[in-house]
């Protein structure tokens, strides 16, 4: 069974506090959905205006590294969920390892992404560079503008997520995670959102050209 949770102002009952944290985080996720929604709207309009150009640009996206990253992130969602459930039930060893695996998988994603960026640059796929491969081709140029913009925004989200998960590990080391498992619950919710955004980006960026 879970230990008695730590209460913070202005709450007096643990159940109400948990409800507020989860509710507040879902509201935040709603803002994130609208934030990325603005991007998906632009992407949809741009692709409708020039589907062939998007396909020509998208054909050069690195499908192998993109797919590896998709697998890494999906696995990390599973490990973090295991950690969260374990923390709630007081299995702190399982929680610790779940958190550590999540941190490793998330970091691995960023490393793979870094290698992918290096290859993209080597293939002259940065639209603002003077030697851009698709100079003059409007559809492909827009595709690569979107690619760099949104993968960077996603990477920033993932880095913030890594910080939040690292905080869980710190709480675990302090020995308070068992009494603050709601923090793990809301961190997991945010982590899932970052994963789901990637799950939408994977077909939009890596599969359009194939």
């Amino acid at each position: 069974m879970s230990a008695a949770p730590i209460l913070v102002e202005p709450f007096e009952e643990p159940e109400r506090q948990r409800e507020a944290m989860v509710f507040g985080l879902w509201l935040f996720l709603a803002t994130e959905i609208l934030f990325f929604g603005g991007f998906f709207f632009l992407y949809a309009v741009a692709r409708m205006q020039d589907p062939d150009g998007f396909a020509r640009g998208g054909a050069h996206a690195n499908l192998l590294l993109g797919t590896i990253n998709t697998i890494l992130l999906m696995t990390s969602s599973a490990t973090l969920t295991i950690a969260e459930r374990a923390a709630r039930d007081g299995w702190m060893r399982a929680a610790r390892w779940g958190i550590i695996f999540t941190l490793m998988l998330g970091t691995a994603f960023l490393v793979v992404k870094g290698f992918e960026y290096r290859e993209d640059l080597a293939e002259h796929l940065f639209p603002a560079a003077p030697d851009f491969s698709f100079a003059g081709e409007t559809g492909a140029t827009r595709f690569w503008s979107f690619y760099w913009f949104i993968t960077l925004v996603h990477a920033i989200h993932l880095t913030i997520g890594l910080g939040c998960v690292a905080r869980l590990l710190w709480l675990e080391r302090q020995g308070t995670l068992a009494r603050r498992w709601m923090v793990a619950e809301v961190t997991t919710l945010y982590w899932h959102l970052v994963d789901i955004v990637w799950l939408l980006l994977w077909p939009l960026l890596y599969l359009v050209g194939r």
């Binding site: 741009a46 639209p127 603002a128 827009r142």
Partner: peptide, 29 residues
């Protein structure tokens, strides 16, 4: 507000990195 955040971030990206997202010469709208 998040949609404004996206709009402002796109302007920042276009000015900072030169990504031609709204540039009509690159097909932007």
């Amino acid at each position: 507000t998040p949609v404004l955040a996206m709009a402002m971030l796109l302007i920042c990206a276009e000015r900072l990195f030169g990504l031609p997202i709204f540039d009509p010469r690159a097909g932007g709208d």
